[in-house]
Design a binder for these strands. Structure first.
Lengths: 333, 333
DNA sequence: AGATGAGATGACAACGTTGTCGTCCTGAGA
DNA sequence: TCTCAGGACGACAACGTTGTCATCTCATCT
């Protein structure tokens, strides 16, 4: 159905190779020949077959693979946006997929991407063991990890957010506003950022000499509904928390819903900024960061690797900043 | 660097073709041979080269192209999510790119996708002329349009939202709550959904015998900042509107900001739902719809086309529904 | 006129895989 | 023992492109 260079050549009355030269803008073709070839190309609607091109060239497919958790989550879609910007600048295409935090799905995706010979991989890793990537990397498909590091054994670049620092800032802020009973909602403990933020929470409390009440720590919540019910339970305690730190945007939304439903005046600081956070009845204080920039930085690192640059594995940690809006400054009752 | 089937064959002491058989699970290979080949495969870390496979097979690359406006916008990222779900079910990979509403960028993207021989295209079209897609479609790369139809001349499937109906519902709702001076913020007039929603606005006013005050109609706003300043201008009029209909999620956010900044009690109904819309000081009444479902339906249509099904061009129009939350029910002063 | 060289063009192989077809071997049946 | 069928496996071509090298055509110079 689709014409090949051979068809174009036949129609233009030249050889296959001459068509190739014209298509690739090589010189050494007479203007009139070029014109004949171009006429044939547009008459037939020829499009160079990049599949064959990549095969013959033996090397670059000019594409990179991106594995995130869920593109519908603004955090990840912003990462994707940053990646896309850099890809565009380098004339690369992005093949992306969602792991939904399922290691098997992630592995299947990465396998498919490698089979398609993407030039590089950007991964927000889900499982705990990514050693299966070692052969891929050593065989020339570089990988950069985003938001979570791989295992020690795996030498690869990684771009992170300062989760511990951000969490400490959040909890410190709440303590300074007079809170002692501060709850923490966090994601599944297997997720690096979740455990790091929980660690930051504990560290900040420790620094202020506030004992951690384990009844107020609710890990393992990974969606809005889970966070909402956990927060509702916390508010129903005999001695409920006066403040809460939420470990990501999903959990913040869930907690906000529960607090509002209970009509409670619980103080809240959330990790990740939210659109409209400043417009709620009580504007939401958050630990903000730069997800788009994280995608950009990761993609740029990857491009350098793809260009063959040899560096020791890089570890980029992007800063967070507290945005004070109101919910984090509510006093204890 | 990466081993080929030939390398595996050499190592296993069999022929290339036998490796191919094992890799593809064909029968007619003795168990002990299969074992030898599999051993060689894992020893070498062999991954079948899908580039070569697609070239040789001559047909399917098992990938589809997705062109949206901006993956960081929740509306489009939800569409992408729906597409990804269907792609996953069909074992397809998604190559996506953002046009940023730039026809040249869109065309470049689509050209690249066709050169990579994606099996099908999903496009939220940006420009006005998509006839350049006709040869691609007729040469076997089916296309399905999302959110906006292509020109008349282009026979292709399209999945839309009932923009006119949704806008009419919104404006009708405002009129029924006593408003007569109802403003409208809408996107660039060249965008199908923008003009459709503006049309719905005019129709609804007309039905109620309310004359359209062109001073209250502000088209051509395409981001939060533009909407915010337009809304601020409207509020500064001698005879400001008592209500506003906003044509998409960006414009709703901008208008909300301006209304809140001015401390105005302007009623508002927005097209597109927003996360946290129910939790604002004045919860936001919206015309909601199903972007994820739109992505799914489009991808499913595309898969049917890719499977070779011949149907007349389909036009799917997904319904909207009004979610009453408060901002749309504010009375005029 | 013949040699020379530059510029234009073409023939051919190769990238890694799979479809087609041919060959070889084994065991069953005559 | 010979034939034959069928299973197991291999040789070869082809997919569409590009790198390498060869060839061909003139215009120029001696």
């Amino acid at each position: 159905m689709r014409p090949t260079m051979r068809d174009v050549a036949r129609r233009a009355g030249v050889s296959l190779k001459t068509v190739s030269r014209v298509v690739n803008g090589e010189d050494g073709v007479r203007p009139d020949t070029t014109a004949k070839v171009n006429a044939a190309i547009s008459a037939l609607g020829f499009r160079r077959n990049d599949i064959a091109r990549a095969l013959r060239g033996g090397k670059r497919t000019r594409s990179l693979g991106l594995v995130i958790k869920d593109v519908a989550n603004p955090f990840y879609s912003q990462i994707a946006r940053g990646v896309e910007e850099v890809a565009r600048a380098h004339d690369l295409l992005v093949i992306s997929g969602c792991s939904d935090e399922d290691p098997a799905r992630e592995r299947h995706l990465i396998r498919s991407l490698c089979e398609r010979r993407v030039d590089g991989l950007l991964v927000v890793p889900s499982g705990t063991d990514h050693r299966y990537l070692i052969p891929e990397i050593s065989m020339g498909t570089p990988a950069v990890f985003i938001d979570r590091p791989p295992e020690e054994a795996l030498e690869a670049d990684v771009v992170l957010i300062d989760s511990v620092g951000g969490a400490r800032t959040a909890v410190d802020h709440l303590v300074r506003h007079g809170h002692r009973r501060i709850a923490c909602l966090s994601d599944l403990p297997g997720i690096f950022t979740a455990s790091e933020r929980l660690r930051g929470y504990r560290e900040a409390l420790g620094e202020h000499g506030v004992p951690v009440d384990e009844a107020l720590v609710r890990p393992g919540r990974h969606d809005v509904a889970g966070a909402e019910s956990a927060m509702a339970e916390l508010l129903a305690l005999d001695d409920p928390p006066t403040a809460v730190f939420t470990g990501n945007n999903r959990l913040t939304v869930g907690a906000l819903r529960a607090v509002q439903a209970a009509g409670a005046g619980t103080a809240l600081v959330g990790f990740d900024d939210l659109e409209l956070a400043d417009m709620l009845a009580t504007p939401v204080t958050v630990v903000a960061h730069q997800p788009v920039e994280m995608g950009r930085r990761a993609a740029e690192l990857l491009c350098r690797r793809m260009a063959g640059e040899e560096l020791p594995p890089q570890r980029v940690v992007l800063p967070t900043h507290l945005i004070v809006r109101g919910s984090g400054e509510l006093p204890p009752p």
